[in-house]
Design a protein around this nucleic acid. Structure first.
Lengths: 241, 241
DNA sequence: AGACCAAATATGGTCAGACCATACATCCTG
DNA sequence: CAGGATGTATGGTCTGACCATATTTGGTCT
């Protein structure tokens, strides 16, 4: 006797759409398909793999959810299922749904954000590449836009841009995608936090210190500034260490 | 005229399954549904929402992909679509597919892993909770199991357990899920790395140093040991800083 | 020749219905 | 009361039809 609920979908015969998924993934690897390439049409795939069209569609829906394909009706080179690369959307949906289910807590999300931003700030401060300078430029623009923002929602919009630029400065697309997903998933909470704080002056001071520390190449100061910034924005989710 | 390819699925009428997704998400929030609760059957949902059953099935497939529901045929309290919480599987699929598409590079994945493990090691070393002691205990068991491993695949299996325990020591489920996904997605590369190294003695020395540093509560030593460990395992993906 | 409009066509989107597989629920029998 | 036969609710899958969209094709007028 196994633990109740532990038997779910184990030792089961693979479903048709799972077989389709595996075949498509094989095909991507074998044929060296990459972003922009097209998959066969749904009807053609169904015939090739010996399954119904609905099973093919379920598989394509999964791939679309994972940000691997995008479908477009009509005719011509852009129609059909095309390989894409949108890992961020999938991450955003994932976080939003699991936050809704209370699978993940705000504190876990905030801590993860702290980890990423500290890492990004330290790396940005240590590197002097053109890409980093471009990112710090976007950070400065976002600070100015936040000064000009009229309402909390507008402020948060540019705040997201600022922190995203920070992540981009480190030059790691995976981390940027995670960062974007984190911010999108908690956008509502961020607006609440701004409303609760009332004054955004302290947050802006933090932003300027982070930006300055990166331009100065002072990784330690950048890390510390990020930590203080998140502590100010989310005081209730204090660390236990 | 927009940029080619920029028009994909914008300003489009939402598809039926997207409407279903939105309604289900609303319902989860409104009814306060949580893990273990059941959704209505596919036929019933289709009728309630005024769509075909296939559209409901596509929506459920998306939710299943995101690790939010699990479906089970049959009858009784465990049958049907049940809310679950498996964010890890979704992350694993996401990383594996995007690595296959060359959307993400190994270096980005390794760097992300370094970030997570350093953070986890530092936190584990700073906290003296029962949960941390349990995790360090699992780390010790994994080290012993790696000593006893007969082939690279077996070694990597316990290596994954070791690094997962390290992430668990920090007590953040989101970070654990990301860590698990990273390791699962690059399992094949890890085996190759072990084969290439030939001798696993160096890796085991690193493991013991990480474990010891955490038990000693020395966050700095733990962080440094993790960095050296990953540098040894993946020398080719050296940082540019 | 060129511009423009209409029909054909390829592709995804959706639905309805049928049937199968699974696993619990129910009832009947000994 | 135990145990098996039957019923039934549920997901899994296929087929076929039709709609919506957008390009391609070809014809027609200027």
């Amino acid at each position: 006797m196994v633990t109740p609920g532990e038997r779910r979908r184990t030792d089961a015969r693979p479903r048709a759409f799972e077989e389709v998924l595996a075949r498509i993934e094989e095909r991507i690897a074998a044929d060296g398909l990459t972003v922009g390439d097209r998959l066969p049409g749904e009807r053609q795939l169904a015939e090739q793999l010996g399954v119904g069209r609905s099973s093919v569609r379920e598989a394509l829906r999964v791939l679309e959810t994972l940000g691997v394909v995008a479908s477009q009706a009509g005719r011509g080179p852009d129609a059909g299922a095309v390989l894409t690369s949108r890992p961020g959307d999938a991450l955003t949906d994932l976080l939003r749904l699991h936050l809704g289910l209370a699978t993940l807590s705000m504190r876990e999300v905030i801590d993860t954000r702290l980890m990423i931003e500290q890492w990004a700030a330290a790396h940005a401060a240590s590197v002097r590449a053109a890409s980093v300078r471009a990112a710090t430029g976007r950070m400065a623009e976002a600070i100015a836009a936040m000064d000009a923002a009229r309402d909390p929602a507008g402020f948060v919009e540019h705040d997201i841009a600022f922190h995203l630029a920070l992540a981009e400065a480190a030059g790691n697309r995976l981390i940027v995608a995670v960062m974007r997903a984190l911010r999108d998933a908690v956008r509502r909470y961020a607006v609440d936090a701004v409303v609760r704080l009332g004054d955004t002056g302290g947050l802006q001071d933090d932003h300027r210190r982070i930006h300055q520390a990166i331009e100065d190449g002072d990784a330690g100061a950048a890390t510390a500034a990020v930590a203080e910034h998140l502590a100010r924005a989310y005081p209730e989710s204090g660390r236990d260490s």
